[in-house]
Simulated assay, not measured.
Amino acid sequence: MSAACIFCKIVKGDIPSFKLFESDKVLAFLDINPLSKGHALVIPKFHGEKLTDIPDDSLAEILPVVKKLVKATGAENYNVLQNNGRIAHQEVDHVHFHMIPKPNSEEGMGISWPQQKTDMDGLKALLADIKSKM
């Protein structure tokens, strides 16, 4: 836990939240600045700024809880978003996953997808490099 972290304060109960789910390792609550009705956050209780800072066992329930939220909200179209670092749009320095219903083209998350041209030899080299480090 981090004393200055808003999400750690929510986990401790120092700041109220609209809790949707809680277990020993995970907390889910409604986003207070939603992009659409049902926009929720799912967080590990373990404090870590980026995904790589969180132990695997603290991540095991995250996607199953997101699935439960999708079913409970009835969202047919939705985004699951998890940002790491400021230029990747992370605002709170505690890992969190957004479940954002997309009921229509105006509400929910908007995305741009700046695809790049691929050089197949470069892609093969990249594949070998990444696989060698896993």
Rank of each mutant, 00 (worst) to 15 (best):
M1V: 04
A3C: 08
A4D: 15
C5I: 01
C5V: 00
C8V: 10
V11T: 08
K12A: 15
K12L: 12
D14I: 08
D14L: 08
D14V: 08
P16E: 10
S17W: 00
F18W: 10
K19R: 15
F21L: 11
F21K: 13
E22K: 08
E22L: 06
K25R: 13
K25L: 09
L30A: 06
L30C: 03
L30K: 02
D31H: 11
D31Q: 12
P34I: 06
L35C: 08
G38C: 03
H39L: 01
H39R: 05
P44G: 04
K45G: 03
F46C: 02
H47R: 11
H47S: 13
H47F: 12
H47P: 13
G48Q: 02
E49K: 04
E49R: 05
E49I: 06
K50Q: 03
K50Y: 03
K50C: 02
L51V: 04
T52R: 06
T52Q: 08
P55H: 08
D57S: 08
L59V: 07
A60T: 03
I62W: 00
P64G: 05
V65N: 01
V66K: 02
V66N: 02
K67Q: 10
K68F: 00
K71V: 14
A72Q: 13
A72T: 04
A72I: 02
T73E: 12
G74I: 05
G74K: 12
A75V: 00
A75D: 10
E76H: 09
E76T: 13
E76Q: 13
V80R: 00
Q82R: 01
N83D: 05
N84T: 01
N84Q: 03
N84D: 02
N84H: 02
G85H: 09
I87C: 06
I87H: 03
A88W: 00
E91H: 05
V92C: 01
D93R: 05
D93I: 02
V95A: 00
H98A: 07
H98V: 06
M99G: 03
I100R: 01
K102H: 08
K102W: 03
N104G: 11
N104A: 10
S105I: 11
E107V: 05
G108P: 03
G110T: 03
I111F: 14
S112K: 09
W113Y: 12
P114N: 09
P114L: 03
K117V: 11
K117A: 15
T118A: 13
M120S: 14
D121G: 10
D121E: 15
D121F: 05
D121Y: 06
G122Q: 12
G122W: 06
L123G: 05
L123K: 09
K124Q: 14
A125S: 14
A125D: 14
L126W: 08
L126T: 07
L126I: 04
L127T: 11
L127M: 11
A128E: 15
D129N: 10
D129W: 09
I130V: 15
K131L: 09
K131E: 13
S132D: 13
S132V: 04
K133F: 04
K133G: 05
